[in-house]
Design a protein around this nucleic acid. Structure first.
Lengths: 192, 192
DNA sequence: TTCTGTCAAACAAGCGCTTGCTCGTATAAA
DNA sequence: TTTATACGAGCAAGCGCTTGTTTGACAGAA
């Protein structure tokens, strides 16, 4: 199999196995078996096992960042930004469920240096959510509540989705996003 | 060291290491080193490495279940049940942060049979939240929204807490719980 | 009190196997 | 003929766990 094609296959297979059995729970032989080659042959395409984890994780981080950047730059209300950002987040998870799972729960197995590099991208992403919330509070669309807790609530929902979301379900990523945004904005309490 | 005392130490040490490096990322020698004994000596106190994971996970599950049971049986409004249940949940995490971390992210490494046993307890716990929400909707305290999404939101917050909560922070478990409940009930949107 | 038998706790060594990874060779497409 | 891809064999280290032995505290008999 040609170089690039095989490499992509390996990344995909590794993503699937890492997401299912964890990084430490997956062996080089698990990955090579699933690719239909011998374990030694993997090393024609990769340098180390950790490189695989890093590349999967970093691609995931980039996906999330890219998906929300254009929304941040657009000139719309905070409420609309929030809705679009949650939709974008859900779409990334929908399109890369396995990579997202690795991104959310296996990135801690990275070496210190690489861990820090991913951490920085996570911080960037979180900052964008923070800005949406601050804009909303400043402009009077959102209640003057503690921004940090709203952000934690938002991130909790976003970062937990991969645990239960299954593409074969009957709601699209957008529909799920909209329901969460509605619930978050309007609250659970009945108004009289 | 006497039997019971040593055993508890091993469980505690294992919990700490599992939560930090993951189950597969922690070796029997890591655990025995941290206890100040040789790896073979561990087996005076445990049968297998997986037994450790199971005991930690199961104790965690029992903590969560116990903490919420009496609340479920009491005769109070759904809103009050919700607040007390979230508080109880936060208190369990505060008091058992490492065990809770293992419970939330390492239980997947259990053998099929034990995994199923923990899964059943998780389902029980989730059902109690469902009942609180259904009661609130039925009695008109909560909006007639999709119960499932409200539950997912609630679980997301509860299950994500261990990722950021640090006991040295300046808010108590109760204060954190109350802020989340307020945000969840009242919503983010400003009322006019 | 002193001696002796018992037993839990830990040691020291190492077993069989798996791990991530290397390297010289074969093969087939360009 | 060159070059990229995969094979086949295997290395050194580490894995979970077992085994035979030592240690030290405490019991009851002398």
């Amino acid at each position: 199999m040609p170089r690039l094609e095989r490499r992509e296959e390996i990344l995909k297979v590794a993503g699937r196995l890492f997401s299912k059995k964890g990084y430490h729970g997956t062996t080089i032989r698990d990955i090579s078996d699933a690719c239909g080659i011998l374990s030694g042959s993997l090393y024609t395409h990769i340098k180390t096992k950790e490189d695989l984890l890093y590349e999967i994780t970093d691609r995931g981080a980039e996906c999330f960042l890219r998906s929300i950047r254009s929304i941040m730059e657009s000139d719309i209300s905070a409420t609309e930004k929030l809705r679009q950002a949650v939709r974008a987040h859900m779409r990334v998870i929908e399109a890369n469920l396995e990579a997202a799972t690795v991104f959310f729960q296996e990135w801690k197995s990275l070496s210190e240096k690489r861990f820090a590099r991913i951490q920085a991208k996570r911080d960037q992403y979180e900052t964008m959510w923070k800005e949406i919330l601050e804009q909303g509070i400043r402009q009077g669309e959102f209640r003057d509540t503690d921004e940090k807790f709203a952000r934690l609530l938002l991130l909790a929902v976003g970062n937990w989705v991969y645990q239960w979301y299954r593409p074969e379900g009957d709601l699209s990523a957008e529909e799920i996003a909209d329901r969460f945004v509605d619930l978050l904005l309007e609250g659970l309490k009945k108004r009289t």
